[in-house]
Design a binder for these strands. Sequence first.
DNA 1: CGACTCATTGATTACTATCAACCCGCGTGG
DNA 2: CCACGCGGGTTGATAGTAATCAATGAGTCG
Lengths: 239, 239
Amino acid sequence: MRQSCRACSIRARALCGVLPEGALDQINRMSRRRRVAAGRALFGEEEGAGVVATVLAGVAKVSVSLADGRTQVVGLHFPSDFIGRPFAAAPPPLTEAATDVEVCLFERNRFEALLDEHRELKQHFVRQITEDLDAAREWMLLLGHKTAEERVASLLLLCLDRTAPPACAGLEAPTDAGSRFDLPLSRTEMAQYLGLTIETVSRMLKRLSTEGVIGIEHGRGIRVHDRASLAACAERAAA
Amino acid sequence: MRQSCRACSIRARALCGVLPEGALDQINRMSRRRRVAAGRALFGEEEGAGVVATVLAGVAKVSVSLADGRTQVVGLHFPSDFIGRPFAAAPPPLTEAATDVEVCLFERNRFEALLDEHRELKQHFVRQITEDLDAAREWMLLLGHKTAEERVASLLLLCLDRTAPPACAGLEAPTDAGSRFDLPLSRTEMAQYLGLTIETVSRMLKRLSTEGVIGIEHGRGIRVHDRASLAACAERAAA
DNA sequence: CGACTCATTGATTACTATCAACCCGCGTGG
DNA sequence: CCACGCGGGTTGATAGTAATCAATGAGTCG
């Protein structure tokens, strides 16, 4: 099942992309691929603390819960995103496949050694966590102060931006109008990510649709007519 | 204004505590102290991206905002907490003194060099960011799914746990009953941290008070009669 | 002693949750 | 082949929590 890192589809954008050519064989040997079906945990109960991974395809969700079952999705991992907690003492939060997922797995301790060896890698890794932290804080703003419609619009925007650019990097979206994508989350998962109920999510999608900002195709498919107006919906003043 | 790291009150718990004795003189020379009055930014506009710091005394708050003024407090920094973003590209979020604050400042690039030199420091630093991320995610759960009363109780619990243990480390709170502390945040700041309005915060404090879980002393002072029941309030089932 | 800020308290509104019914696509099995 | 059940999604009616609007109280500083 091993494939060459040299041919990896997401290497350019992933953490490992900063490694010098010479190290590719090395990481090629210490990595393995894994497919996970939608709905299943990415790692085994015990395993989670001991591995790290990069998403090759699909979307993974991270969630935390209260004893009574209330669950909050706290993050999404799209292709090229890094998953895992080098040096951490606490166990990682539950990470599951939202869609079918393919990941590139590393033993955590071997990855830690790699971090020690390659200064570049270490810096990019720190940058990556910092971005995760920023994203979480952005989402706190959403959960604390945005209206239901703004929340749904924000999520659509996120999915659009992370899904749409399939290969183009460094450039702004060339065609600002008329892009489409499939939501990687069910209504239940969207609700858990947005701090809403599935009914409210459904109603807000409808509203955005009747407002003409998006089109909905058989549930999961979303067509964004105009990114700018969707962005406006994502943070228009409460008034 | 320079003082010896050897005599630093929070060294045992702070990041710099992991450095060997031999490095103390070195960091002593590269650090400087700064006092910031409540309500003022910790760093200048330009300065923020170029420095890192450790909180010596007081509490700092981190916040993000929407264009229309809606503001979310996304984190608090208590004494011994680290502030700053080594290797980051994005500018840091606004960090202000909630109470009067005293910090120990380092130039960011010198701190980055220190991270490269000392493996121990690097690992603890990564652990620290990871904990920040976990804390943010915990708070997302609060903002997404907790009731107003649970939110207020959760904040009190946080302040209690970060304020109460003045020197004792490694031990559970010995006297579980009858501790008191002063809230480091105004009602407005509490509301911005909890995703509520100041009126609701005030009402919930009142409710917790009449429920007998806490006592309120002239606004900022909080007496916790029983930590366990406060913890219960912080995540009791919605029913 | 006002002017001001911060907090409390009360009355009312409204956004979103809850409760409930229904639809749709799909796989099963009589 | 179609009744049936089931999960996921939509739509509607109602209710409740917290926001909003509004007024009062307490503490501080000129």
